[in-house]
Structure formats: C-alpha cells, structure tokens
Nucleic acid binder design. Structure first.
Length: 283
DNA sequence: CGCAGGCCCTGGTAGC
DNA sequence: TGCTACCAGGGCCTGC
C-alpha cells in the first residue's frame, strides 16, 4: 500500500528515467484509470502525447510529472498502483492500465493497478502544484512543512487522533501502516481524541511519524506482497522495521505484551494494549 | 466549516 | 471441488 515512503521511492526511481524524455504514445487500457481526468480518456491521451517531462515532484502520496508548457501529469497509486519501467518489447501484463511509450530506445512506462483505486490525470497549469491537490497539506519532508502549525491543526480536531493523522488535509503522506507505527512509537492509543492531547504529545507523534517514514524511505518502502514494488519491480524491505503493524498476537518489542488488532473506521489498527492505553484507561 | 460513514475495486483466502 | 463471504484500504462524496 503506497504511503509516502513508497511513493518517494517510486518518484526517485522514476526521475533518472523519465526526466528529459518525450512521451511518444499514450495508451489508456482501462477507463477507470483516468476517471478523474475531467475531459475524458481521449483528451487525456491527446494532452499527454508528445510532451516532454521536465521534472518529477511529490506531495504526500501524490506524484506528478512536470510537463513542458507548464502543465502536469498527476499520479495517485491508490492501494495497488505501480509505475514500472519496461523494455519496449515487454507486452503489457493483465493489470496494466496506462502505457506511456517513448520514441527513443529507453524503457517504456507501465501504470499497473490491480485494484484500480489509483488514477492519472493531466492538470492544465499544474506544474508547481496541480489544482486537484491544492487541498492536500504539505508532508513532513516538504521544506515548507510547519510543525507548530500542524500541531495546532491536529489539536483543533475532536476526532480520534488516528483519524486526524490519516486526514491528508491536516498532514499528508501518512497511511494506515505508518500511522500505527507512529502511534506505537509515541505510546498513544489510536482512539484518543486529538484535542485532548497535550501539545508536546502531538509534537512527539508528528516527530515519530516523520522518523519512521524516513527510515522506511532508506529501506525502499514496505512490501507485504508483490503489490508494492519499485520502478524495477523490486520489493522494499522495511517490513522488518515494523513494530506493530500486521503483528497481532506477537509480543510488543518494547514491553512484551501481546499486540492486538482492533477494527477502526473499517480498517485494522494494530497496537500494544500496555504501551498505548485507551482513552478510558488513560486516567 | 467539522465530522462520520458509505462507496469504489480485485485477488486471495477462509469456511462450508 | 466449488461456492460464498470477507478482507486489504485511500480518497472522494454525501448528509448531518
């Protein structure tokens, strides 16, 4: 599941292969992959054909190609999206949704997405920041990230703190895996109301989220299966760095208590019941 | 504006 | 073996 570290790994992997090259042919193989491109599939193909990619940028879980003429090709990988560099002779696999072919002898690019939650679109004038993601907050790795402002924004919300951590308009890039890991590191229960946490605790939490994601970037991201791989099809190896996520029934690496799984907003939360006291136990 | 819940989607697997 | 039910979950949308 691509969160910030996985998207960063992919953006960095793409950069040397796509910047400075001209997209020769665009093939949309599944209409759902361009459902957010307002003016339709053929317009998407027309907009992207012949364009020179000048840069690759990322904010949170989104990445985009900066195109000549000031536009952008925006990409969100959803849950299972991949950007794969493939030699021109490689025929598209079953889940290839969009093919970007080049006229030069370098590799082509396949947007692969089994579960079709991902998408691409062309954003007019989106070079610096595509319009569809102007509501997405900066992520902790952005040079303009403001810790104090983010702490304040988190503490204005009355929802459970994990919900707020996952809200991409508050802080971007954090998904279910790194939210659970950050909460465990900061010893905070996922259901604590955000506005009842002291400023210093929220600051700790953001620090831990940033740290765990930085470690994951160094490991090339987290791969549970072959749904997340880098641009060359290789898995990341941060799974061994996880302390709670996916580890129900195993001992907490810090205190030895048995890690539990809870249903939370229709997804799983993994936590240590001793290190992370629930709101009712907290006082 | 904040908040909570539903929906989109596919492949793998558990259970009968 | 073949069926059904459920699970993974990010972000958009709706209704309050």
């Amino acid at each position: 599941m691509p969160e910030l570290p996985e998207v960063e790994t992919i953006a960095a992997g793409l950069r040397p292969w796509v910047v400075g090259r001209q997209i020769a042919t665009v093939r949309v193989l599944h209409p759902r992959a361009v459902r957010r491109h307002g003016s339709g599939q053929s317009d998407f193909e027309a907009q992207l054909t012949g364009r020179l990619v000048e840069g690759v940028r990322r904010r949170g879980k989104y990445l985009w190609f900066q195109l000549d003429g000031g536009d952008a090709a925006l990409i969100h990988l959803g849950m299972s999206g991949q950007m794969l560099l493939r030699a021109a002779y490689v025929r598209p696999g079953p889940h290839v949704r969009i093919q970007l072919d080049y006229a030069d002898s370098g590799p082509h690019l396949h947007f692969v997405d089994q579960r079709t939650f991902g998408h691409m679109l062309v954003s007019r004038g989106g070079y610096e920041l595509p319009a569809p993601i102007q509501h997405i907050a900066v992520d902790p790795f952005d040079e303009s990230f403001d810790v104090d402002a983010t702490v304040a924004r988190v503490r204005r919300r009355s929802s459970e703190v994990k919900r707020v951590l996952l809200d991409q308009t508050v802080v971007s890039g954090i998904g279910n895996i790194y939210a659970d890991e950050a909460l465990w590191r900061a010893r905070i229960h996922f259901a604590r109301p955000a506005n009842r946490l002291p400023r210093a605790r929220v600051r700790d939490l953001l620090y831990e989220a940033t740290t765990v994601m930085a470690e994951a970037v160094r490991a090339g991201g987290t791969s549970f299966d072959d749904l997340y791989v880098d641009v060359n099809g290789r898995s990341g190896y941060f799974e061994r760095g996880l302390n709670v996520y996916g580890r129900e029934g195993r001992p907490c690496p810090r205190c030895g208590a048995t890690i539990r799984r809870a249903r939370f907003t229709n997804r799983s939360s993994f936590f240590c019941p001793r290190c992370q006291r629930s709101p009712r136990q907290a006082h």
